[in-house]
Design a protein around this nucleic acid. Structure first.
Lengths: 226, 226
DNA sequence: AAACATTAGACGTCTGATGTTTGTTACGGC
DNA sequence: GCCGTAACAAACATCAGACGTCTAATGTTT
């Protein structure tokens, strides 16, 4: 493809090696990566080149650079940072419609590959979700709710879909949900999630899609300005 | 929020200004942006800082840097580069399932906001698509086909969905389609697109969704390894 | 025990120099 | 007049060194 004499920018190679290090689990999410001088010694490049690589991945959401402290791993997929920046530039309604698209597909696929172990775990999550809501622990409710959706995406068997859910998490769930809680939100159809789980357990993809549609249609009613 | 004395990294501000310049159309897609010395003078930062900003946006797919030549604008949304890199790491089937999710939603929304002018344009595109196929001009067929899908996404009225389609274009359409053309592909349900257009014109969202499902189910049958 | 001062480490930025690649131009041969 | 080659200039790539600023940890004082 390329003439032997020409080589790609060194910084790109450093980006690839950093990406690979994160993907391989050398540094887990939340951990601090080695300091610049250490990485310079390891990769054998100058500080400027290393910083360009780190900056690119930090912009993509893989790293967070804290001046005076160090650089931390914030995600395993570098789509999160960019996606969140793009998503924030669009109306909440548009974002929810895209989530709707992914939710229905995740439900359909999850129903198609029903697994008793996964169903049991989902049931456990819904129990925790219900308890948190009734005890007024909104933070725990929010966490359990999102965990449920994430597991459904994982159960779809589509690794890309699962990765998208993990990356979009903060935008889909974290920021938006809280706003609605203040306004007398009632937990988004208390029985909606149970119905979805039943449809998944029964392996009925179309029924699963219907519950998601009903659920999100209801949610959409809580959108500001509608 | 922040103590007055602390300021964010300069490079981040340069990133924002470059992004804004592209978004505002100061440099169109395909154009060359000013050289590093010129931008240094404009922004009042050093080479290293400017290069970190450009590198971050180049990694995101907004720019392409050609050594010895210059830096060119390659997209208006910076999600494209990252998305394409992530998508390529997943199986074709997984990617098509995600596209399926977006396609059905785009069709549903487009049917909900039917517009005679848009319908006329879509019809014109389908005519061009059919002619290209019959005359054996696969390149033109592919372009018209993708243009049709893109316009449907635009007609949905959801700017985020439209932006995602533009960014994923190469992955969704460019690479994958060509492989199938070799194997005796027959144009993906010759009448599928016409039915979709009719459903959109009639404002029947559910019918539009059904045509997309039928269309992509058929396409899925051409996936390698299934 | 709490509040303050110090310090070492880490990232942020700038400057200057040199190497590589690419596009253009001028020159000489045909 | 055409064409290939060499020289030149422009632009990005990389390196090295220096200094500033911020953070977290430590030590000191009250």
């Amino acid at each position: 493809m390329n003439v032997p004499g020409v080589r790609p920018p060194l910084a790109d190679e450093v980006v690839a090696r950093l990406r690979e290090a994160v993907a391989s689990g050398r540094w887990g999410v939340g951990e601090k990566i080695p300091s610049e001088p250490e990485l310079i010694a390891e990769f054998g490049v100058s500080r400027g080149t290393l910083r360009e690589a780190i900056k690119a991945l930090a912009h993509a959401g893989l790293f967070e650079v804290l001046r005076g402290d160090g650089t931390y791993v914030r995600a395993t997929s570098e789509i999160s940072g960019t996606a969140q920046r793009v998503f924030r530039e669009h109306a909440d309604e548009d974002v929810l419609q895209v989530r709707f698209a992914l939710d229905t597909q995740a439900a359909r696929l999850a129903a198609g590959s029903a697994d008793t172990a996964v169903v049991a775990e989902l049931r456990s999550l819904l129990a925790r979700r219900r308890e948190s809501w009734e005890s007024g622990d909104y933070a725990a409710w929010s966490a359990a709710d999102w965990e449920f959706h994430l597991r459904v995406a994982e159960a779809s068997g589509n690794t890309l879909l699962h990765e998208l859910y993990e990356s979009f998490g903060d935008v889909f769930h974290g920021t938006k949900m809280v706003q609605r809680l203040e306004a007398g939100f009632d937990g988004c159809l208390a029985t909606g999630h149970e119905e979805l789980l039943e449809a998944i357990e029964a392996g009925d993809g179309e029924a699963a899609v219907r519950t998601v549609i009903a659920n999100l249609d209801y949610c959409m009613g809580w959108m500001p300005g509608r």
